[in-house]
Computed example of a mutant assay.
Amino acid sequence: MNKKISIFLVHFIVLSFKLDAATVDTVSVYSESMHKSIKDVVIRPAGYNSSQKYPVLYLLHGYSGNYSDWIKKDSELPRLADEYGMLIVCPDGDFASWYFDSPEEKGSRYETYIAKELVTYIDKHYPTVNNRAGRAITGLSMGGHGALYLAFRHQDVFGAAGSMSGGVDLRPFPDSFGLDKVLGEYSRYPERWEQNSIVNMLHMIKSNSLALTFDCGADDFFCLYNNQLHEKLLERKIPHDYTSRPGGHSWEYWCNSIKYQAMFFSTFFNSTNKMKAG
């Protein structure tokens, strides 16, 4: 083969690969509730087309992290957007917001920001399946708590939710992870800690309203509390998937876990679309 043609083909193949890969956007979204702009990552799948409607997976970071954690730590994340044809949105949840509208810090309103302001922005600026059948939310550690918390409280917004190594019971950690800053001291406001722990919020789940999946590493300090959440869901006969795999509270664990959860959410998106089509 002619050498020039060979070089051209190589460049063409490389260019085609780049054009057919996920695109990572960093957007700045103004929060009316907090009076500031907040950065978020949006991953668009390969072959993104503005005339097509895409389901959205909201993926939350953990304590002390930010919006860029997932895309920096997990190089495979764009491939998951490609494989399942979904948008992946990684919001900023501040250093230690725990995704509450904090009764202590009036400038920390990350429940309102993500469940209302950010969802509205994404639906306005991207071609989304803009209803609960096209939205899922999950996250790691603090973000695992946040994802379940937001989904339980906003079942009209999210149709599926998950958690990876989530802090699902806050009460055992009164002096850790900045929780006292957003909820107040446990000794002064125990009711806040009780009411905002996921294990005490199961009464909020409407019958078959949420597709749920969560997992935790067997060596994780949160594993005991995730096991207890699983048992309480069983007691209430609330359908869910739960897995405890080998591993600790680490990015190695979470980068593996998100692969299974992305598959779970893709199945949810596909099943709800089929039901509508039928």
Rank of each mutant, 00 (worst) to 15 (best):
C216H: 04
L224G: 00
V168K: 13
E191N: 14
F214S: 02
D220C: 07
G184C: 09
S207C: 02
G144S: 08
F173R: 10
V182G: 04
M142E: 01
R171I: 15
L179W: 04
G217M: 01
G162V: 07
D219T: 13
S165N: 03
N227L: 14
G162D: 09
L183W: 04
A136K: 03
Y189L: 11
L210V: 04
A160M: 11
W193M: 13
F152E: 05
G159W: 11
A160Q: 11
S207G: 00
S207E: 15
F152R: 07
A211F: 11
Y225H: 15
L179I: 06
N208G: 06
L148A: 05
A151R: 06
R192N: 15
E194K: 15
S187W: 13
G143N: 10
C216R: 03
I198K: 10
S165E: 02
M142G: 02
Q155C: 06
V157P: 00
R135C: 01
N200F: 12
R153F: 00
Y225K: 13
L140N: 05
L148Y: 08
D220Q: 07
S163P: 08
F158S: 02
H145W: 10
Q195Y: 13
N226G: 03
H145K: 09
D215K: 13
L148Q: 14
Q228V: 08
L150E: 06
S176F: 05
A133S: 12
G217K: 03
H145R: 09
I205L: 15
